[in-house]
């Protein structure tokens, strides 16, 4: 029983972080109507940024997160100014094509700078666990789960209660009607892209906290983000977080019976089932975009 409880709790903690990895994808898809295929690569880039800053200056996690957010904001600004700005009137396919190119460039530049080797960020103050009754919770898991919850919460409050957030929701429903009311929807798209990138950066910090990583791991994280999106849908970021949680718990529980090396397969089975069940719903949603 205690084993199950520990498993479920660590599944929840990990699952919240999974939800965060899918957040950027959900957000850009649901509100900006482009799916950023560079998401996995950007997550890994965020992890490398965190690692590099930590090794250089031994910053604490909050500062790391903020620093990575700023850098990703700058990166989004650059990409927007140099590329995406010119693609707004073109078809979505062309935007995707360009983002695919960008993803490849970033992945290979990352592996050029930081090599293709597996690396890990070890923050000494977070290496132990917190004991809570019979539960033993690693600090890294707690911190990354907290980051996920805070990031989602802030984003949710932003969308719900700020003027800009309302404009983002309005534009997502109808670009034309928002423009009629004077919203510069081209700027709104740029902001959505920026938020999506910043979310990928934050997710990258949590990846660095929890796992060893290498540039070519981007695919795993893209797959994870995609599973989260398929399970959680693209309409609501809270359900994205919840989807991550469900996946985390399911994976943890499956881990009790399935050998470690086969755990990924559980994840893909999850994806296939979710796609089967959600196909109609997603197709309808895509139509209304």
């Amino acid at each position: 029983m205690a084993v199950v409880l520990t498993t479920v709790v660590s599944g929840i903690l990990l699952g919240l972080m999974y939800g965060l990895t899918g957040m950027g994808l959900t957000f850009t898809m649901g509100f900006g109507k482009t799916m950023n295929v560079a998401q996995g690569t950007l997550i890994i880039l965020g992890a490398f940024f965190a690692l590099t800053f930590f090794n250089a200056w031994h910053l604490n996690v909050i500062v790391l997160v903020i620093l990575v957010m700023v850098l990703f904001g700058v990166l989004a600004g650059l990409l927007n100014l140099s590329l995406l700005r010119f693609l707004r009137d073109k078809s979505e396919i062309i935007t995707l094509l360009v983002l695919f190119g960008v993803a490849e460039v970033i992945e290979n530049v990352t592996s050029w700078i930081w090599t293709g080797n597996l690396q890990a960020m070890t923050i000494p103050t977070l290496q132990n666990s917190i004991q809570w009754g019979s539960l033993s919770l690693p600090k890294t898991d707690l911190v990354s789960a907290a980051i996920a919850v805070v990031a989602t919460g802030v984003l949710y409050l932003f969308l719900q209660y700020t003027y800009l957030g309302k404009a983002i929701r309005a534009s997502a429903q109808s670009d034309l009607y928002a423009r009629i009311l004077g919203v510069n929807t081209s700027q709104i798209r740029a902001i959505i892209f920026l938020i999506g990138l910043v979310l990928a950066g934050i997710a990258g910090v949590t990846v660095a906290l929890l796992f060893p990583f290498a540039p070519q791991d981007q695919d795993q994280w893209l797959v994870m983000a995609f599973i989260v999106v398929v399970v959680g849908g693209i309409d609501n970021i809270l359900s994205t977080l919840l989807a991550g949680l469900v996946i985390g718990v399911a994976q943890a529980l499956a881990g009790l019976v399935v050998p470690f090396q086969d755990q990924n397969l559980i994840l893909y089975a999850f994806l296939a089932i979710a796609l089967l069940f959600r196909n109609n719903q997603l197709a309808r949603r895509m139509r209304s975009l």
Binding site: A167, A170, Q173, Y177
Partner: peptide
């Protein structure tokens, strides 16, 4: 809009999943 023009398009132009208040606030975006 800032010069005093306003446009009511054909069809239904409310944002269905925004509240009435939020819809009105969007009308004051400028």
């Amino acid at each position: 809009l800032a010069l005093g023009l306003a446009y009511l398009p054909q069809g239904h132009s409310v944002f269905p999943s925004l509240t009435v208040q939020e819809n009105l606030e969007m009308g004051l975006w400028i």
